[in-house]
Simulated scan of single mutants.
Amino acid sequence: MISIQTEDFDTGAEYAALRESGAGTGAIATFTGLVRDSGDTQCVSGLFLEHYPGMTEQVITGLIEEATQRWDVRKARVIHRVGRLLLQEQIVFVGVCSGHRGDAFAACEFIMDALKTSAPFWKKELSEDGEHWVEQKASDVARGKAWGE
């Protein structure tokens, strides 16, 4: 299940929903990303995120399908927020159920890494000095290539 939304999400409720994936589930791995100060020369006060409606959901569906082909994924959940977000607000949630922890960890990490480089999101950092669009980091691209993207 995929949600692109402006409103915040409840990680506890999302985890509880993943637990209902069946008796064969032996592991749930989750990741929650927060808005942070990038640590660059300017002090970031927040972010503004945009996406390509329709295409974003299609790309994320493809990432989940690929994870399901590579690992034992029983259920997956991706939530990504868009719009204006302040420091320490939740920005993304990825949750994966599997029969075993190794598959759950790997699939969750793969989906999150692929989101950073494949999904059509654009991020603008907001600061006292103004706004600027953020480019993909070389480290994110390298992580994507390590998965065979």
Rank of each mutant, 00 (worst) to 15 (best):
V96Q: 06
E65A: 15
G83Q: 09
I91V: 14
G95A: 10
V78Y: 10
A114D: 03
M112W: 03
E66G: 12
A107D: 02
A76R: 08
V78H: 08
I91E: 11
L115S: 12
F110I: 01
L115F: 05
L63Y: 07
E66H: 13
L87E: 13
V73F: 00
K75S: 13
R77E: 02
V73R: 03
M112P: 06
V92S: 12
E65G: 07
I91Q: 13
D113G: 08
F105C: 04
L63D: 08
G62S: 12
L86H: 14
F105P: 00
A107G: 09
A76C: 13
A114T: 02
V59Y: 01
G95K: 05
V94Y: 06
M112E: 06
V92I: 15
C108K: 01
R70I: 07
A114W: 03
L63C: 11
C108S: 12
C97P: 02
I64P: 03
R101K: 09
A67H: 00
V59H: 05
V82L: 07
E66Q: 15
T68W: 00
L115V: 09
L86C: 13
E65V: 02
G62Y: 03
T117Y: 12
G99N: 05
T117E: 11
K75N: 13
F110P: 01
V96G: 10
L87T: 13
A76E: 05
R74N: 14
A107K: 01
R84N: 15
I79R: 01
I79T: 08
T117S: 14
I64V: 14
V73Q: 07
R101S: 03
I79E: 01
K116C: 11
Q90N: 14
R81W: 07
I111G: 02
V96H: 04
S98D: 06
G62D: 07
I79C: 06
G102K: 11
R74I: 11
E66Y: 04
I79N: 04
V96K: 03
D103T: 00
G83D: 10
V96D: 04
A107Y: 01
A106V: 08
V78P: 06
I79S: 05
V96L: 09
I60S: 00
A107M: 01
E109V: 10
V73S: 09
V96C: 11
L86S: 15
E89Q: 15
A76N: 11
R84E: 15
I64F: 01
R70C: 04
L115H: 07
Q88G: 09
K116N: 11
